[in-house]
Amino acid sequence: MRNALKTALIMLSLLVAADAMAQVPSLARCTRSANLLACVDGDGNAYSVNTAGNTIYLRGFEMAGKRHWVQTNSRYGQLVFFTGIASDGEAWVGYNQRVGWTTINRFSSSGGSSAKFTCNRISGC
């Protein structure tokens, strides 16, 4: 699985689990407004998260692969569906479902990656 997809899924899991995102100075430098968070890490990777109602828009740049990617997440109660595409043509779809303190995650990509994993606030992923 490509780094951008991993980063997007981990970021989405954190957003879903915590319903908020905090700045971590040692990992990335972030700027935030009412509904936009934009970050750049020490390796030159960049991403932004924009919220509009029940929809979250992610956009990023992966320095190692020199590729841009976008992802849209739509929330319906405890269920979040997401779709994304990268500048090299890779596309992915998936969902996250929150059940109590547990988040069930499933995705597949046009690059052949697919997975189902569970995250918990106490034990992690």
Score class of each variant (00 low, 15 high):
T7W: 07
K66V: 01
N96K: 08
N35I: 15
L15T: 02
S74F: 00
L36F: 06
A18C: 11
G89M: 03
F61K: 08
E62I: 04
N96R: 14
S114T: 14
D88T: 05
Y95T: 05
S13A: 15
A28E: 15
S33G: 11
A64W: 04
K66P: 00
A34F: 08
A86V: 02
F82E: 02
I85R: 10
A46K: 14
T51C: 08
P25C: 13
A4S: 13
D41A: 02
F82N: 07
K66A: 15
V24M: 02
T55G: 03
I56D: 03
K116Y: 12
L14A: 07
R29H: 13
R75S: 09
S74H: 12
V49P: 02
M63T: 04
A38N: 11
N96V: 12
G124S: 11
C125N: 01
S113E: 09
G112M: 05
S33E: 08
R59K: 15
I104M: 12
T118C: 15
S33Y: 08
R121G: 11
A86N: 11
F117P: 05
G124I: 05
V40P: 03
S87D: 07
R32P: 04
S48N: 07
G60F: 00
R75G: 08
I104W: 07
R59N: 12
R32F: 13
A52R: 10
I122C: 11
G111R: 06
G112I: 06
W69N: 02
P25R: 07
T51K: 11
N120T: 05
V93R: 02
S108V: 09
C39L: 11
D88R: 08
A22S: 14
P25L: 02
G77P: 06
S113I: 00
Y95F: 12
V40A: 11
A20V: 10
V99G: 13
V99E: 07
N96F: 09
V40R: 13
G44A: 01
T102E: 05
G42A: 12
N50F: 12
I56G: 02
A34C: 14
S108K: 03
A52D: 13
I104R: 09
Y57E: 06
N35E: 10
N50H: 14
F107R: 00
F117T: 07
T103N: 12
I104T: 11
S108F: 10
R59Y: 04
A20M: 06
L5T: 10
L12K: 10
C39A: 01
L79F: 14
L15N: 03
G84H: 06
S87H: 04
I85Q: 08
L12W: 05
L37T: 14
A20D: 12
L27F: 15
E62G: 09
G42D: 13
T51S: 06
S113A: 15
R32T: 15
L9Y: 06
T72N: 09
I56A: 05
L79Q: 15
A4Y: 11
A8K: 00
A17W: 02
N120F: 07
E90Y: 04
R106G: 03
G89T: 13
M11W: 01
S87Q: 10
I122H: 12
M1D: 04
Y57N: 09
T55V: 15
G124A: 01
F61C: 08
R67D: 01
